[in-house]
Design a protein around this nucleic acid. Sequence first.
DNA 1: GCTGTCATGTAACAGGTTACATGATTCG
DNA 2: CGAATCATGTAACCTGTTACATGACAGC
Lengths: 175, 175
Amino acid sequence: MALEHALLVALRERPASGLELARRFDRSIGFFWHATHQQIYRVLARMEGDGWLTVEAVAQSGKPRKLEYAVSAAGERELADWLTRPTALDPLRSELAVKMRGASYGDRRVVRALVEQHLAEHRARLAAYHGMAAEQYPDPDSLAAADLDRYLVLRGGVRMEEFWIAWLTDYTEAT
Amino acid sequence: MALEHALLVALRERPASGLELARRFDRSIGFFWHATHQQIYRVLARMEGDGWLTVEAVAQSGKPRKLEYAVSAAGERELADWLTRPTALDPLRSELAVKMRGASYGDRRVVRALVEQHLAEHRARLAAYHGMAAEQYPDPDSLAAADLDRYLVLRGGVRMEEFWIAWLTDYTEAT
DNA sequence: GCTGTCATGTAACAGGTTACATGATTCG
DNA sequence: CGAATCATGTAACCTGTTACATGACAGC
């Protein structure tokens, strides 16, 4: 499992509650990882039981109290160790690709329309990522350490959307 | 679930046994979908129970008999219907991206080495895909219908590997 | 008879999704 | 009071992975 380690990275960047983590996973880190709040709560509880995290109840003005998690020394060791372990190539599962491949067994025009819809959504995402890059990293050449890492992963998100746009455009032009 | 539908596509292209499907999923269709033989057997049995597939025991010379599955009329209807249903954007989960983002919480040089190893594997895959394209589709401009679809998905596989190579190269040059 | 390959499976588990439940607090 | 938002969780289910089991057949 790697959600645990994605959470360790997120919590080392900044301690947070379960819901805050879920929201963060819908943005920055979420280019390449996603999790629902239900799953996050479950995993946080287990990690705290394993001693990787510490919890603290934090009162908030105007909102219910939240449980803020932070990485413990044992969690830091686990994260550092995990970072050195080899990783298999990340498999991609694309339902859309299966539909593109099987288009001739149904209505090709509908499949083409689905592709065009995805294309529009990927274009919107690309624009959003460009906006985030311009806002959060106005001067990319002067970045270092953790800031540089975050920027480079955002660059990956941009390239990913460019990949989808290029491929799906290719498809619509050829069909 | 979409493994069922990926199997319907694969079996409409050509009836096959469970193990043959598993092998096929490691190649052509496998750019964007993967499944182990254990999972495939389980799903095939359920699909046959649902009436989407027919089975036939086929004797082979020099090998044990195999169970060959083919798509039934009900399966064809289901596939055609699924092809018209909208699909959410395919989420990508990348452990390597999490490691890149968290590199500063461990040994950055080791993370960099992992990235270089992935880079080499993606280069090898790209070469393999180019080889498949040259061998199976020597004249892409004259393709139509199912052959065109398969070629366009292979193009997607090529673009995918190019995405990884561009991004990971980017990363190694910046760190 | 042993090893390797082909072929089909079972069982236990881990990971992830979906639907629902509960309570605090603010705002109209 | 009712609706909306924030926050934490439970339960049931589905999907996918890992480890193991079984048997047929070929070649040495």
